[in-house]
């Protein structure tokens, strides 16, 4: 992996402000370059939306933060990504540790085919040690707390043993967020979390994202500009694998600095 030349000059100052920082990130799928020189700083506790036409690399960017991309096998990366000030592509980085800290929500809700309760506790089972896991009462408390946090408790509290796949899609998506919370992540990556939902479900999940703002750093990919406008505080516009513009959401939609951004926002392409 090629180290970035600028490393060291500004590495220490932003330790406590940036949740995610990419340096000169380039990524190839085989011969196709999906990301070009991406330099990005994502602030802690802020909801940042990544927008852009399909194929612009926004999902790829998201998927390199928790290194879930590597499963594909033919992915090559240069440059670096720091999460909470630590390079995640360094040797000796434990992927389970990284993914515990950086939770991910997928486009299509993917609860496991087990009960609602077990879905919430799944990550604890993965990361907890066998003998010092939480006791029975504590577990029920965690389930309730996490489900309350995602505004799901009231509708499922009487059927915690029901299969998670029986829930409505919006409820499933909320559950997928809830199941990340027991292991206390600090960053949530959301890859078009509402695109499989109906308008009502979308509104519910957006409300939840707004609710989680400040507590978690949220990086959300969306092709829906209205959604980016509604839920995010900062906005990143990507085109053909490059970052075109990164600014406060209100500024980007009111007065985009780049012509390409303006054209996209106004719907001239996309």
């Amino acid at each position: 992996m090629i180290r970035n030349a600028r490393e060291g000059t500004e590495a220490t100052s932003d330790r406590h402000e940036n949740a995610i920082r990419t340096r000169n990130l380039n990524l190839w799928y085989g011969d196709f370059q999906a990301l070009l020189d991406v330099d990005l700083q994502i602030k802690k506790g802020v909801v940042t939306a990544v927008i852009g036409p399909s194929g612009c690399g926004k999902s790829t960017l998201l998927r390199s933060v928790n290194r879930i991309n590597e499963r594909l096998g033919y992915v090559r990366i240069t440059g670096g990504i720091e999460v909470l000030g630590h390079d995640v592509y360094e040797d000796g980085v434990s992927l389970p540790r990284l993914r515990k800290e950086v939770g991910m929500v997928f486009q299509r809700p993917n609860p496991l085919p087990i009960s609602i309760r077990d879905n919430v506790l799944f990550s604890l089972d993965l990361h907890g040690t066998r003998d010092q896991g939480p006791g029975k009462g504590v577990k029920e408390e965690i389930v309730e707390r996490c489900l309350r946090r995602v505004l799901l408790w009231d509708s499922v509290k009487d059927r915690l043993q029901a299969k998670a796949t029986k829930l409505s899609l919006a409820e499933q998506q909320k559950l997928c967020i809830a199941r990340l919370l027991p292991v206390k992540p600090s960053i949530l990556l959301m890859d078009e979390p509402c695109s499989a939902l109906d308008p009502k479900g979308t509104a519910a999940v957006e409300e939840l994202i707004w609710e989680l703002r400040g507590v978690y750093t949220i990086l959300i990919v969306t092709h829906n500009m209205a959604q980016a406008r509604r839920v995010s505080e900062e906005c990143v516009f990507m085109l053909m694998g490059r970052i075109v513009e990164h600014s406060l959401t209100e500024d980007m939609f009111a007065a985009p600095k780049e012509k390409q951004t303006a054209d996209y926002i106004e719907g001239r392409y996309g």
Binding site: N66, I68, R71, L95, P96, R97, L98, R99, K100, G103, M104, F106, R108, N110, P111, L112, P113, F122, S123, L126, H127, C176, R179, L180, V183
Partner: peptide, 13 residues
Amino acid sequence: RAFREACWSMGAT
């Protein structure tokens, strides 16, 4: 595959 992805993304080996 979605089941596996869900697991991996939560840090399952």
